[in-house]
Design a protein around this nucleic acid. Structure first.
Lengths: 107, 107
DNA sequence: CGGTTATATAACGATATTGTTATATAACCG
DNA sequence: CGGTTATATAACAATATCGTTATATAACCG
């Protein structure tokens, strides 16, 4: 479960979520990712390192550039974990329905 | 999107995820949540405050107890945001399929 | 080769997070 | 009322996070 720590904590930062949203449109180099943000290149480089460490992106080497793109594994793991919560919420919701249904006749 | 910060960052902590997993089984009081952990009651109380602030749990008052249960809103918001990544990953995967399909003949 | 471009890393300060202990609050019970 | 139980809060230390500037590395281009 250690990688869930990394994945969720990577997603907790709005800059990193914005980077992922940008990458959802397609591959981008580090400088392309720096451009829309009011932040220095080293700052973005470290955000990218965090995202890579969390398994949310991968990078290839292309000359002096490092194009980044989304990686699927971390999202799958998160989805799986959230599934547990989703199922529990549905169950509790069903129970609530039962309670409400049981109450109606008595109104 | 500020609440996504709170939700993801709440989920980044393994103790808090364990608390949620416990609550997936049903409501629990603070002391019931303290028991399985090797941690003091104030520590758990603050984790609960974080989870509540993130909209992941709600608490009612029952005498001197505060039973906690899962809340649906934050999970829904997370799901919605992850949907964006999921769709992008599918699209990129399709593109990869195209690339591979285009490569095969040349092998 | 020498200058420029793309990216990474180190060092540092400011702030946030997480745990602890000590203590406050407030309901419950005899 | 007085003691116990359930929970919250304050104060504090240790550590992590996030930004910055300065600098390193290494590919590219003329």
């Amino acid at each position: 479960m250690a990688s869930l720590d990394a994945a969720f904590s990577a997603l907790a930062d709005p800059t990193r979520r914005a980077i992922l949203a940008r990458l959802a449109l397609g591959e981008a180099t580090v400088m392309e990712l720096v451009e829309p943000f009011d932040m220095t290149q080293p700052a973005i480089s470290r955000h990218l390192k965090v995202l890579e460490g969390a398994g949310l992106i991968v990078r290839r080497i292309e000359g002096t550039k490092r194009p980044c793109r989304l990686a699927p594994s971390a999202v799958a793991e998160i989805d799986q974990w959230l599934g547990m919560l989703r199922r529990a919420l549905e169950t509790n919701y069903d129970r609530l329905d039962d309670v409400l249904a049981a109450m109606k006749p008595e109104q």
